[in-house]
Write a protein that binds this DNA or RNA. Structure first.
Lengths: 204, 204, 204, 204
DNA sequence: AATGAATGAGGGTTCATTCAT
DNA sequence: TATGAATGAACCCTCATTCAT
């Protein structure tokens, strides 16, 4: 019918609802969260939520989109002034895990709630996530040209593996009792990813 | 109230329901699947489902548990007769991805539907998943003792990274148009994991 | 999706819901009636209503259809054994007004609630109502052939006028304090319809 | 709380809202029409509607009242200069059907939307409608005194029947595909009403 | 054991109305 | 007077679960 509600008037309310939703979804799960819960947490009336979001799904999607846009923008900006491919990879890992480690609610939503259904995931993976994987891939290709990474590497697959590693770090951290800081996994992961399991043959 | 529903009486019906549920959950998502859908697919009455499963959640959990038990048993059995740690890793990856690649419905349930909520995930990760990660870790430690893997490696983290890589392969395969066979990713992943991104200094 | 619910099992419940709905709709109006009200009046659970009817609209439509089918069947049956066209008209008027006069709830639903919207009315008028008007028209044509009714009469229009007269009698009766019996209007209406306003020139 | 909203300040806006409401109600039905729809159609803000009308019901009532007041005034005025009772009846029929035939939206609101509930109808029938029926009745009584209409006629009932005939003409016209002009039914109806179905005995 | 009709709690969403500007 | 963002009560319908047969 009508155009996407979006931010009609107050960015404050829009942000408040998004923040509240992240908290509620993280705490109770998306499906078990009521829109009324989100509204109460955001200190707005139930109906107000629908002035800013098309429906409940749209809230979840908006959390994802906004965070990914921030992440990609921040990533691109940070990478722009760097040249060492390994440092760039480390930077991506750092920004990724630091962001989630800083906000457990956001982490839960990203690692758990967003994986609700193929409906969501297909939508996400074909847009923002593909863009994110591509950003990683470009670093790897750059590294290949610079002779820092092996030439015979399948960069598309390697990008997935790298992302998979970060993803697993985040998921594990959430499901653990969080006795450690998530960013503390950045260096080991990057190191492992670059060096591999096997001892440097040079050692031999 | 009553005793825990059992699988004793008719394993046929129990299996039929589990198979039906995997199909339905994969197709429509866990939350959007109705118990009645599962019952119809399994050719039993709605009420019959409750003779075999405590509730809807229990069906999902049972899919997970049974598959994991199979996987761990199959894995242990296959690994028992092998000695090369790298071959063992490759075997784990193969069994993991071959199983999911063979049954897309199961793959969807594992990669998507089981991640419904922290409630499920915490339950899973503290039992079967921990056991699975431990199995991987033991291979790595064995490899360290055999001098095949670097000693300074954090095997716990490396196990997670390895699992994360396999997990991402599976998820990506589901979300892609599946134009390739999932098992085709086994060798590249294992190779990357062992060798790392960087060129062998020996090459130089 | 699924087939029309209709009478799945118990005609008792089906009838109870229809009777309850007639009462509730008559009392509070269709739009202001809650399905829960109907269910309570029928002594069934809310959800049970949906085992027998597709939705709230379907209840209203079912009241109309069932009543009209009864009316047309009863009418045809009664007319079959009669020959005098005027007597037939009187019979139609009698059955029409006696039925509504016997059940004020039904009368209210027919005279008021069913006129909710063009959506309903167009649906009704093109099927059952058209059939009813046609039944009247056939009597008039028969009367013309028998020389009892004027030949130059537009029977289609006269049928509408006759129906309009009965309809207005019913509506007026409902909106009045019902100090009279609805059937008492049968003879005057038929007489007026046959004779007209003007004095018989033969009188002069 | 506050005083009854008035039409004083801006008759333009008042009329615009009434015109818009007639259109919207006709198109979507009263219950399915949103006040916001009416406001948009009238090019005013939602809240402005409440400066001119007490609530949504009040808009519908106002459409009825204003139209009836016009109709009765116009009728009285036209009848004042006439003497022949049959001509007067024809004039009433003409004004009635010409008005509705000229504005389909208004016709739909009158024939369909106003019959929403006994709440509305009782309110209407005890005031404006009674007045209208009374106007018709007076013509009939006058005709009786003049010897044009039969003396033994129940004028109250005959007035209802006449109104019922006009009402049915209007309803039928709306529900048909409107392939004819509504006013074309004036003469046949009046003629039928005066002469009746049966052939003039004088003919014999 | 198996059935499936019946249950009824639950929630996303709409929209008439208000009121601060 | 006019606005339109905000409100929150209201409700249809779904569906997991039960239980009489």
């Amino acid at each position: 019918m009508s155009a996407r509600p979006s931010t009609r008037r107050s960015p404050d309310k829009y942000n408040a609802i998004l923040r509240a939703a992240t908290k509620i979804f993280a705490r109770k799960g998306f499906f078990n969260s009521k829109v009324a819960d989100v509204a109460r947490e955001a200190n707005v009336a139930d109906g107000t939520v629908y002035l800013y979001f098309k429906n409940k799904d749209d809230i979840l999607i908006s959390i994802f989109n906004r965070t990914m846009e921030d992440a990609i923008a921040t990533g691109r900006h940070a990478l722009a002034v760097m040249s060492d491919p390994i440092a760039k990879l480390r930077q991506v890992a750092y920004l990724h895990l630091e962001r989630l480690g800083r906000d457990r609610n956001l982490a839960v939503v990203f690692q758990v709630e967003l994986r609700q259904s193929t409906k969501f995931m297909e939508q996400f993976s074909t847009t923002k996530l593909a863009e994110y994987l591509d950003m990683i891939r470009k670093i790897l290709e750059e590294g290949q040209r610079a002779g820092v990474f092996r030439t015979k590497l399948d960069t598309k697959m390697a990008a997935k593996v790298f992302f998979g590693a970060l993803d697993e770090m985040a998921t594990n951290w959430i499901l653990s009792r969080r006795t450690y800081r998530l960013v503390s996994t950045v260096d080991p992961v990057v190191e492992l990813f670059c060096t591999g399991l096997c001892p440097d043959r040079a050692e031999a």
